[in-house]
Simulated assay, not measured.
Amino acid sequence: MRIGFDLRTLQGHSRYRGIGRNVAMILKNISKIDKKNTYIFYLFEGLDNPLIDLELSKSFIYELRYVKEKGLPKKRVIGILFDEFKPVDATKDQLDVFYQPDVSYGIPKSVKSVLVFYDLIPLYFWHKNKFRRNLILYYKDEAINRLFRRRYLRTIRNYKKADRIISISGFSKKDLIKNFPEIDENKVSVVYLASDSVFSKKPISQKKYPHDFILYVGGADQRKNIDGLIKIFYKLKHTHKKLKLILVGKEFNVEKELRHYPWFHEIKDDMHFKDIIFMEYVDDTELIGLYSKAKVFVFASKYEGFGLPILEAMSIGVPVVAFNNSSIPEVAGSSAILCDNNNQFVAAVSELIDSSAKRKEIVEKGVEQSKKFDWLNTAKETLKIIEEEAMK
């Protein structure tokens, strides 16, 4: 069987985000279990080959196909007016099926397709509210945001063309069908993600961290509710004077990123702002060290397709407090404290800091919950769906 696999997402900005990490882990684990099929990997010409870092099984069979980047001007507005990427031309490769882990790269014609669906974040949170003193720049941003949403709606229609869809959670599947009822829900299968096995290892980082801190790992976009999390932290400071908040993610650069968010200018003058530590991208060794030393992992997101950092924290043995929405209850189960408002969140974090018994209870539940999600199982289920579609 010849399986097409679009790997271009591992060469773009998504490489170090959730999609990139998921694609890398699925491929790495498929290479361990599939010794019979031939994979045709599609990559951009002239860019780094991401396969070099993946340590695929030596018995894994694959071929490489290189495609040229679409020749559009690099200006953001032009890229929004048109689709950023065109589907690969697979007509000469005699594929039985094509696996597309990132819908923004499109699907080729005349071949059965399996697409991965993550979430509808750009549909709900398309309005990127930036801090602008200049009114002209404000309206320019508004126009660009609307164009971005239109392009996203064009891209999302690829799911209607797919022969099979893999959704990363039951919540995401329901959300897709609710918003696009013309998609047959029988062709949508749920296959859960997992946390990297590296997060079940003992920490080896020698770096020193504050004695008392709560931790957040992820993005800083609107749905992540960072302003809400910081307000929660400020309330916690009333009773926990020495507590720090560490925010980890590539967007937590004050000069390059955060100063563009309106909420940043609302919270930066507070007397407790000095107790917030902003950290950009850190490697896995340091991230494990941070997780292992944190008093609580705090996740105030308003919407998640899955919520991978929750599993990472649980597998290391950090108690989790999160808001009760979207896919979060599905992933966390009863092994985290899920809240409906800020006051509940403050109370939950306080209890976990102050009560060793409650902390021990949530940590033990979390470790067991994290074991239910395994990348090898994810790879097996993904491969089964791909093969089923190819043989139809």
Rank of each mutant, 00 (worst) to 15 (best):
A336I: 03
H127C: 06
Y139F: 15
L7Y: 05
L308Y: 00
F180M: 15
A294I: 09
S334M: 00
I30E: 11
V116I: 10
Y124L: 02
I316Y: 03
D374V: 11
S59T: 14
L135A: 06
A336M: 05
G4T: 04
N145M: 04
R151A: 03
R133E: 14
L137C: 04
G71V: 02
I40V: 15
Q222S: 04
K365L: 15
G307I: 06
E84K: 14
V349Y: 00
Q222K: 07
I61W: 01
K235R: 14
I30G: 09
L64W: 10
N134A: 01
E361D: 15
P50C: 12
F299E: 07
I30R: 13
R149G: 00
E364H: 09
Y303K: 01
L137P: 00
A294L: 08
R223L: 05
N325F: 02
A194P: 04
F5S: 05
R150W: 08
H127Y: 14
K35A: 11
K28M: 12
M314Q: 11
H260N: 13
R146I: 14
A294S: 15
K201I: 10
F117N: 02
N253S: 09
R164W: 01
G249A: 11
K250W: 04
Q222N: 07
F213S: 08
Y234N: 06
Y281H: 13
A322V: 06
F125E: 05
R2T: 13
K384Y: 08
A220P: 06
G333E: 11
